[in-house]
């Protein structure tokens, strides 16, 4: 795991965990279109998963721990690889021109950083309610709808930028994970890239739909 290839594998696996989370998270978000009740029920269900076999919120906590560990490992690997890259080229080029197309590949690092910062804000807003008008002791759906209230259009804007960045990050990240884990080859490249783009697009649309709907008053 200490080798550069090992770290890349860590990024790929942890990235996969996070993608899995994002897919579920997005599906959950979409419940808002079925009404506040439905959304709140979903949020509640998460906490009571596998009850009464498991105690209240235990499964969710385990999942959250896996997620946090993944985030930390993903960032650790990214930072140490970035540091390694910096050490590998101490003197910069006077002129440097990229030859590989793919805007997404070149924004992985600061894109990832921006997403990380956003996640902090996001948690403070909708999970802990610290920066949310409704505060922590409110129903999840209330926090969500209040959070993206038309008056708080800039929150929606931040969200939009972040989600688009996530999309770009994944467009490269998903196929890159396959490459890193050694499952890619010439014959599969096209399909893999298409899959990565499709997945990213679905996630972007899925995540943007609820806040935009709220901000523009479609969902109240």
């Amino acid at each position: 795991m200490a080798s550069s290839n090992g770290k890349k594998a860590v990024m790929a696996v942890t990235g996969a965990v996070m993608v899995g989370f994002l897919v579920l998270h997005m599906l959950g978000n979409l419940k808002i279109f079925l009404g506040r009740e439905s959304f709140n029920d979903y949020a509640h269900a998460l906490r009571t998963l596998l009850e009464p076999i498991a105690p209240y919120r235990s499964v969710l906590t385990i999942l959250e721990i896996i997620l946090v560990v993944s985030v930390v490992l993903h960032m650790w690997a990214a930072i140490s690889l970035a540091r390694r890259a910096k050490q590998a080229r101490p003197v910069k080029y006077v002129a440097k021109k990229s030859q590989a197309g793919g805007y997404a590949t070149h924004i992985m690092r600061w894109g990832g950083l921006t997403i990380a910062l956003y996640v902090v804000w996001h948690l403070l807003d909708l999970t802990f309610g610290v920066v949310n008008p409704k505060g922590f002791d409110s129903a999840p759906a209330d926090r969500m709808i209040a959070g993206f209230d038309p008056s708080r259009w800039w929150v929606t804007l931040i969200y939009l930028v972040a989600v688009v960045l996530v999309g770009l990050h994944l467009r490269h990240g998903v196929w890159s994970a396959f490459q890193t884990l050694g499952w890619a080859n010439r014959a599969r490249y096209k399909a893999l890239r298409a899959t990565a783009s499709l997945l990213s697009a679905v996630l972007v649309v899925g995540f943007l739909a609820p806040p935009l709907a709220i901000t523009f008053g479609v969902v109240k």
Binding site: K8, A85, S98, A100
Partner: peptide, 19 residues
């Protein structure tokens, strides 16, 4: 691969600049 690391080369991020 271990030798490549030991030499101080960076890790691959699949940018495709090389190819």
């Amino acid at each position: 691969v271990d030798q490549m690391d030991a030499e101080g080369f960076g890790g691959c991020t699949n940018t495709g600049e090389c190819t």
